[in-house]
Simulated scan of single mutants.
Amino acid sequence: MGAVDDNELYPIGDVARRTGLSVSAIRFYADAGIVMPTGHTGAGYRLYDVQAIARLELVRTLRELDAGLDDIRQLLVGETTLHDLATAHLALVERQALRLQARRAVLRTIVKQHSATDQVSLMHKLVSMSDDDRDRLIDEFWNEISDGLDVHPAFVDRLRSMRPNLPVQPTTEQLEAWIELADLVQDDDFRHSVRAYLHDTYSTAQGRLITTPPVPDSIEKGATIMREAQVAYQAGLPADSPQAQGIAHRYAAWLAELSGKHDTTGFRRQLAANLLVAKDLHRQALQQRAAHTVSRFTDTHGRYLSLVATINGTTHEDNSPVPVPYEWIATALNAPGSRSEPAWGLQP
């Protein structure tokens, strides 16, 4: 398209080609008092100058952004600013986006779960819940699940603290996860399954022991070291390397502290021997019962935690047993020079 002359007046056909608007749209904006023609030909045809063409291009852009005619009119006559118009319109668009996300989440859930017609209204209510409503629903769930759980109260508080916090502007995936979680925590079978899993796992002598402060924090510390060992092992870090020995030493120090023993050279030597024995015992245990245990966790408390992590936008830590590189740690403990390392603050 040729250059625009600041002093020239252009017929409506040229203006249409330059702005991408139809002739009828340009006439409509003139009749609505949005952008008036600059002048007319002797035959009464409308003419537009450069400034009018620029205003029409702005109108086209704002209309594509769904701005209303009254808002555009106020902008062009100077009763509002582009910044104020954009701010107000952005708030409107964001509210519309949230509603569309909620609808999308409901529809995707219906498609994925083949939901019944009577569930549609319920799902729509779930995505429209307030923060207080969501908190109340989760509180009711944990009140029932924890009732009669024979563990330290601090552990119950730890369980209850793992709860969903739906952000102000959730993604469709977060809304889908909330719909599923809200549906699950109200389901009697799911409540019974989670309650049974937690009671069977922790309402035992050993379970009560590992839920009593500060044991849970200590166990998490050991699990963190073990995850570090697993990552290093899978990355191919040599067991006799200083880095591997450092991980093994921290594991030995943690285990000595947990068991109330001293982290001595003899303790580490015995730990290395025990790890080699445990390697075979662990393999047998996995074959006999671990698959069932992990599956039960995944279907109950694990599913709850996974959905909460999705809703909160965090990474879910798999609480199933961390695979232990027994032989790798034992080799690191027995590596030349390993036993001469300091006992990490624990005196024999």
Rank of each mutant, 00 (worst) to 15 (best):
D6A: 15
D6M: 10
N7C: 08
E8W: 15
E8Y: 15
P11K: 13
I12Y: 02
D14W: 13
A16Y: 00
T19H: 03
G20T: 07
G20V: 01
L21V: 02
S24G: 05
A25M: 10
R27P: 01
F28V: 06
F28K: 08
F28L: 14
Y29Q: 07
A32E: 15
G33R: 10
G33I: 09
I34T: 15
I34L: 11
V35C: 01
M36A: 15
M36S: 14
P37D: 04
T38E: 12
T41S: 13
T41H: 07
G42V: 06
G42F: 08
A43P: 01
A43T: 13
Y48A: 00
V50K: 13
V50T: 12
Q51L: 12
A54T: 10
E57N: 11
V59H: 05
V59N: 06
R63Q: 14
L65F: 12
L65A: 14
D66Q: 12
D66V: 05
D70C: 04
D70W: 02
L76Y: 01
L76D: 01
G78T: 02
E79Q: 11
T80Y: 05
T80L: 05
T81M: 02
H83P: 02
D84T: 12
D84Q: 12
D84F: 04
T87E: 13
A88E: 15
A88P: 02
L90E: 14
A91D: 15
L92P: 00
L92E: 11
E94D: 12
R95E: 14
Q96M: 05
L98N: 11
R99F: 02
L100F: 07
Q101R: 14
Q101W: 04
A102M: 09
A102I: 00
A102S: 11
R104I: 09
R104V: 07
A105Y: 04
V106K: 01
R108F: 01
I110T: 05
I110P: 00
I110H: 05
Q113P: 00
T117C: 08
D118E: 12
D118I: 03
Q119K: 12
Q119T: 11
M123Q: 12
H124M: 13
H124E: 12
K125Y: 09
K125Q: 14
L126K: 06
S128G: 13
S130V: 01
S130Y: 00
D131E: 13
D132V: 10
D133H: 06
R134V: 05
R134W: 01
L137F: 03
E140Y: 05
W142N: 08
N143S: 14
N143G: 13
E144P: 02
E144V: 13
S146N: 14
G148I: 05
G148R: 07
L149F: 04
D150W: 00
H152A: 12
H152V: 08
P153Y: 10
